[in-house]
Simulated scan of single mutants.
Amino acid sequence: MLDGRPFEIFGQGSRVNDTHLDQGSDIDLVLMLTAPAPGYGWEEFRDDVLTVLGKSYTVRMGRRCLNVDDPGSLFGEMVDVLVATEHRWYPVPGADYYEQGVFFRDQDGRAIVNFPRQHRRNGDAKDRCTEGRFKAAVRSAKRARRLGGADLMIDGWLAPSYLIECLLFNVPDRVYRSAASPSAAYRDALAWLRRTHRDDPATFAALPCQNGINRLFGPGPDQWDPGAAARIIGVLHQL
């Protein structure tokens, strides 16, 4: 059913970004149609992928991804597959250069555009510039999130790892590098975020995602409220 359809498969998420805590965490993959055609877009591609995978594996539709709930399948582990179509964002309208992103819809049918490859590239560069302290801070925040439980919930969902990682990405490199230790760098990063929200709320509300293209806060289905994010930072700071 997918024969002749041009697509790419690549990794995203904590395993690929090296911010995961457990070796048994899910593998996150993107299955991206690279040439949507009239009459064959995201909905048709998603339905075809669901049909093809469903012939061999136990598959269910999650909030955004197809969950392959079969430990014996594919890579021998649980796999989440984000079905998407290619999205091209042109920083300069009319120019030839573009950033390649992904388009998909969530369970409620809301359109989302994201840039996972840029997210990974920028995170790797940040980690090099901070001598490994950025990703160490992300892992520390995730461990603290496990302890925070209900105090870190947003609309009934545990504070997303993506939100936490993007927040810590926006902390200046000098804050990480000047700390006495990796654990001190994590605390200093949270303190910087708390001060920025308190003293310069406009700057805090304008923080970008780690991909450098999307805005972290706003009304979109993949955005959050600055006040809720500040509350999460406060809880993490206390843990």
Score class of each variant (00 low, 15 high):
56 S>L: 02
156 G>S: 08
212 G>Q: 13
25 S>E: 04
54 G>L: 03
80 D>V: 11
230 A>M: 06
36 P>L: 04
8 E>D: 13
189 A>R: 04
129 C>L: 07
81 V>Q: 00
106 D>F: 01
29 L>V: 08
187 R>E: 12
76 G>V: 11
133 R>C: 02
6 P>F: 01
204 F>D: 00
122 N>D: 08
85 T>A: 09
199 D>I: 00
154 I>V: 15
193 L>F: 03
34 T>P: 11
236 L>Q: 02
117 R>D: 00
181 S>A: 05
205 A>Y: 02
28 D>S: 08
166 C>V: 10
18 D>V: 09
204 F>S: 04
54 G>M: 02
49 V>C: 11
31 L>I: 10
81 V>R: 00
78 M>H: 12
80 D>R: 15
89 W>R: 15
184 A>D: 11
34 T>I: 12
93 P>A: 07
143 R>S: 02
106 D>P: 11
145 R>D: 01
53 L>P: 10
138 V>M: 01
56 S>Y: 06
62 G>W: 00
50 L>F: 08
83 V>Y: 05
220 G>Y: 11
205 A>N: 14
170 N>S: 14
196 T>K: 15
107 Q>G: 06
143 R>K: 14
235 V>E: 12
125 A>V: 13
41 G>A: 10
45 F>T: 13
237 H>I: 01
180 A>E: 09
13 G>T: 10
224 W>I: 02
112 I>V: 15
84 A>T: 15
139 R>L: 01
187 R>I: 06
24 G>K: 12
155 D>A: 10
11 G>K: 13
107 Q>V: 12
81 V>L: 13
47 D>M: 08
223 Q>H: 13
204 F>R: 07
104 F>C: 03
136 A>W: 09
180 A>H: 10
113 V>K: 14
4 G>N: 06
174 R>V: 13
73 S>E: 11
212 G>P: 14
180 A>Y: 04
224 W>Q: 08
148 G>T: 12
210 Q>E: 14
201 P>F: 01
227 G>V: 05
132 G>S: 07
60 R>K: 14
135 K>Y: 04
140 S>W: 00
42 W>A: 08
189 A>Y: 01
75 F>Y: 15
68 V>Y: 00
40 Y>C: 04
135 K>D: 03
7 F>Q: 05
4 G>K: 05
198 R>L: 06
98 Y>M: 01
72 G>T: 11
208 P>W: 01
228 A>H: 08
130 T>I: 06
146 R>P: 01
223 Q>N: 11
116 P>I: 09
109 G>P: 09
77 E>T: 15
95 A>Y: 04
46 R>Q: 12
153 M>V: 13
60 R>T: 15
52 V>I: 06
209 C>L: 02
93 P>G: 05
121 R>Q: 13
198 R>W: 03
177 R>K: 12
118 Q>N: 12
140 S>P: 00
236 L>R: 07
147 L>A: 13
111 A>F: 02
51 T>V: 07
122 N>F: 12
79 V>M: 11
33 L>H: 15
185 A>L: 03
121 R>E: 12
